[in-house]
Write a protein that binds this DNA or RNA. Structure first.
Length: 501
RNA sequence: GGCCCCAUCGUCUAGUGGACUAGGACGCAACCCUUUCAAGGUUAUGACCAGGAUUCGAAUUCCUGUGGGGUCACCA
């Protein structure tokens, strides 16, 4: 519920305890990155705590290495957490599989209160019931077979080791009203709610139970989660109310849609994204040359109206501006072109030494031996040309390796014959050789003078030199490049080009 | 299909009854700058889903429809 009463503003500014609670079942998705970011921003904004909790109660879906990837992803994004499985904290443990005793204790409390009950129905019976319901066009729901069982008798069967689950005893009458910070109040008829499973027959809790218990015990004040939880929101509220606990502020974030805006990313779109040089996973993004500053900025603004004008924001500016009242409830289509824009902007804002450090791996990945001094000199002439870090390869790789003699057709500027170019090259070479010093400023002037004398266009002379020296039609600015590769290399490559014509 | 959520330029968004001739950003187009590619600068195109209702006045409130999304597990 949007509110700007003074009282609620003050409440919002109390230090928040927020958590990012992923399950280690695969790669870290862009949507997760945004959820983590919003959590982080609110924690920093209010001077609160950002917590990482691993929700790994489903061993069937457990993916080895996924937890580490999550942690690495968070660190890479710059979203340091204050409490988590690998660093500990006063509310631990932070991995749900390490909290089994806690869930056992709390489910017993719920059973004792009469708000939960053991259910001995077999999966086969449940499937049959569901099938029958579907056939009769009624909504598939648990039929309450074990709901009315005598607690003492049920307990005996449990004690004897009979296989069972624990279900929530959902109120059968009335309505449940829940409140989402972005959407206001949502009221549903309790008849539409189900007696959901809280503890599975393997003894582990479901999300519904574990997350509610943990959020309470960890004193979570705000829950950011995807809108896919809206359907089970009333269930969660009822569980919390059955315990008599206080609810956190709920913020259900909208989902990311595929670029067309029609539906969420499918397998097909994920493959298309890869083909286009993008990814919907955080780790993929870093390999593709995106930087955390750019990625954070991009995801932050999908679902958040940060301001009227300035869109390029650093993490600390985001903390400054962050406001959960400004979050948007409508779904947002992924727009990779916008990511390019933010990434380029943030690359240009990096300190030269920082950019050099970040670019180096992409060059080395190409098998190049990168000289630090040279790299430093290259930064100023390529930085505004980079959209992603790996764009440095086409612009800068040639500085660090031998380049093959370009084919004649590449060497010839438009509308010039080979003989003419050969002569031009020879003349230019002579001028270059005669220069007392060799820097971008001492080279440019004589070159321009030559162009004027010969009534040539800059394109003709510079184009030839560019290809002769870099081996490419596109390069960073010519004279700065010449200075960096050095006089000897320039002379040798120009001479070689002239000879080849 | 039931239930729930959402609805402003192609996309992300600003907008909380009059300051809206609806603002910004990305993209697209044009021009300027220019040795290539960029970056930068200037300009242009471009939207309140539809219909009712409330009101002196609606992008903003309400209703209906339509469209889109989510969810209906012993997954999270």
């Amino acid at each position: 519920m949007k509110s700007n009463s003074l009282l609620e503003d003050l409440v919002d500014l109390k230090p928040a305890r927020v958590r990012f609670a992923p399950s280690p079942t695969g790669h870290m998705h862009l949507g997760s990155a945004r959820t983590a970011l919003y959590n982080y921003l609110l924690a920093k904004k209010t001077g609160g705590k950002f917590i990482l909790r691993i929700e790994d109660t489903d061993q069937k879906r457990y993916v080895p290495g996924a937890e580490q990837e999550l942690i690495d992803g968070l660190r890479w994004l710059g979203l340091e957490y204050d409490e988590g499985p690998d660093i500990g904290g006063p509310y631990g443990p932070y991995r749900q599989t390490d909290r089994k005793a806690i869930y056992d204790e709390y489910i017993q409390k719920l059973i004792d209160k009469g708000s939960a009950y053991p259910c001995f129905c077999t999966p086969e019976r449940l499937a049959a019931v569901r099938e029958e319901q579907m056939k009769n066009k009624v909504q598939p729901r648990y039929d309450g077979h074990c709901r009315g069982m005598d607690p003492g008798g049920a307990q005996k069967r449990v004690d004897s080791g009979e296989k069972h689950v624990i279900r929530f005893r959902m109120p059968k009458e009335g309505k449940t009203t829940v409140s989402d910070h972005l959407r206001g109040e949502i009221t549903v008829d309790n008849t539409t709610l189900d007696d959901s499973v809280l503890i599975k027959s393997d003894g582990w809790p479901t999300y519904h139970f574990a997350a509610m218990v943990d959020d309470h015990l960890m004193e979570i004040t705000h829950v950011f989660r995807g809108s896919e939880w809206l359907g089970t929101f009333p269930l969660h509220a009822n569980i919390i109310r059955a315990f008599g606990w206080q609810e956190p502020v709920w913020v259900h974030l909208s989902v990311f849609l595929k670029p067309s805006g029609k539906g969420k990313m499918s397998k097909r779109e994920k493959e298309d994204a890869i083909k286009d040089g993008y990814s919907i996973f955080v780790t993929g993004m870093s390999e593709l040359g995106f930087i955390p500053e750019g990625l954070n900025n991009w995801t932050a603004l999908m679902g958040w109206g940060a301001g009227e004008t300035e869109d390029v924001l650093t993490l600390s500016e985001m903390i400054d501006k962050f406001d959960i009242d400004k979050l948007n409830a409508s779904p947002a289509a992924i727009n990779f072109a916008r990511l390019d824009h933010f990434n380029g902007e943030h690359i240009r804002r990096l300190e030269a030494w920082d950019l050099a450090k970040r670019i180096r791996p992409y060059l080395e990945r190409e098998g190049l031996v990168v000289d630090e001094g040279k790299l430093q000199m290259i930064i100023p002439i390529i930085r505004e040309r980079l959209v992603t870090l790996d764009d440095c390869v086409p612009f800068a790789a040639w500085f660090f390796k031998e380049v093959a003699t370009p084919p004649a057709e590449e060497l010839l500027p438009k509308g010039m014959a080979a003989q003419q170019v050969k002569q031009m090259g020879a003349e230019v070479l002579e001028i270059l050789k005669g220069l007392p010093s060799f820097s971008h400023s001492t080279v440019e002037e004589p070159m321009r003078k030559y162009i004027e004398e010969k009534q040539l266009s800059p394109n003709q002379v510079f184009g030839f030199l560019r290809v002769a020296i870099s081996g490419q039609k596109v390069s960073p600015p010519l004279f700065e490049s010449m200075e960096i590769v050095g006089r000897d290399t320039v002379l040798a490559r120009v001479a070689r080009a002239v000879d080849s014509l």
